[in-house]
Design a protein around this nucleic acid. Sequence first.
DNA 1: GTCCGGGTCAGCCGATCGGCTGATGCCGGG
DNA 2: CCCGGCATCAGCCGATCGGCTGACCCGGAC
Lengths: 206, 206
Amino acid sequence: MSVRILLCDDHVVVRAGLLALLGSTPDIEVVGEAGSGEEAVAMAAKLKPDVVLMDLQLGPGIDGVEATRQIAPTGVHVLVLTTYDTDADITRAIEAGATGYLLKAERPEELFAAIHSAAQGRTALSPPVASRVMDRMRGAAGPSLTDRERDILGQLGRGLGNREIARALFISEATVKTHLGRIYAKLGVDTRTGAVAVAKERRLLP
Amino acid sequence: MSVRILLCDDHVVVRAGLLALLGSTPDIEVVGEAGSGEEAVAMAAKLKPDVVLMDLQLGPGIDGVEATRQIAPTGVHVLVLTTYDTDADITRAIEAGATGYLLKAERPEELFAAIHSAAQGRTALSPPVASRVMDRMRGAAGPSLTDRERDILGQLGRGLGNREIARALFISEATVKTHLGRIYAKLGVDTRTGAVAVAKERRLLP
DNA sequence: GTCCGGGTCAGCCGATCGGCTGATGCCGGG
DNA sequence: CCCGGCATCAGCCGATCGGCTGACCCGGAC
């Protein structure tokens, strides 16, 4: 019996590509296409597919992570299929309940295998993604920033000064400095510019 | 008579999507697919298609801009089809000789129209891209950094302080500060972190 | 109940940064 | 030949940053 799939991607080209690839395989059946997160949530509830193929970047409206957060609890497996293998994206998707994380650059056979894995609730990760996750596990004392520290880092990445960051986050400048100090320590730097550089390198910033 | 197309994209899914979309139209014929820049250059020379549909991000090897730079002079029209509409990408692609610049989020009809335009050598731009180009024209004084300023910016993007930048480039700290001041002025910021942020946004940094 | 991690804040001080003014040398176009 | 753009450097000064020390509150773990 074939696996029933719901596609979710805002790019027509990508949906067409997946449809073409998956439609040609006998044991996979595409039962629906969604062009936005809202649409995906609604169609997942109605169609109850075995697997939702979810892009993370969905243009306006809720993004793929939020859509995954809403779909996953309903028992429908979500397989993230996206272009980027950034730490932030991967962890957010996994936290949101994604069953797997594939890259669009992946070979079709990998995609088919991952879909069947996901249909059975088994995790499927692209090799580069798996590597990153392993690195994350190994580097136990790795860059484990708190939520608030990530907020600060995000503002920092926009080039704001301490005062501006403080106003943006509704806290005092002193608090910003405290957080920055801890961020520097965790990233192994001692300047804000260095923090941005490292964060950029480790893909902690958009 | 139909337009002969060569696809170039490192993503199998995207190639399949374009193949599916274009294959269903009678006046467009896909004569080849390339998964890398090198492949695209070779196939363009051999197949002499009317239009090359070129992605800019191509994974390892030469990128879409470089491939375009090599293909365009041979008289083959290159229509860039990519995900991003950043200033730097657009200008680099156009400088490299691209005939048009489309976004993957574009409607299929736009894509068809753009292909026919490109086949005749006419420029085709996605609306958001066209807007940016117009903005650029209006604000004639674009961010034209000198080579040396780009050097400084590069070091800055690594998180170095003025003294370190000075040592890295074998100049005095005073000179670094002078260059930084001019960079700030050209980028419209007033802090080093802001410069990194803007440079990152405009893709002036690796 | 106590301990601890996370978030919040304050004050102090040395180092760094950014703006300013001004100067030199090189090179290429008018 | 002179002018302008580019790169180089110096000194001054106010603003900002980064490190430090110490503090409070809260919620969950033990």
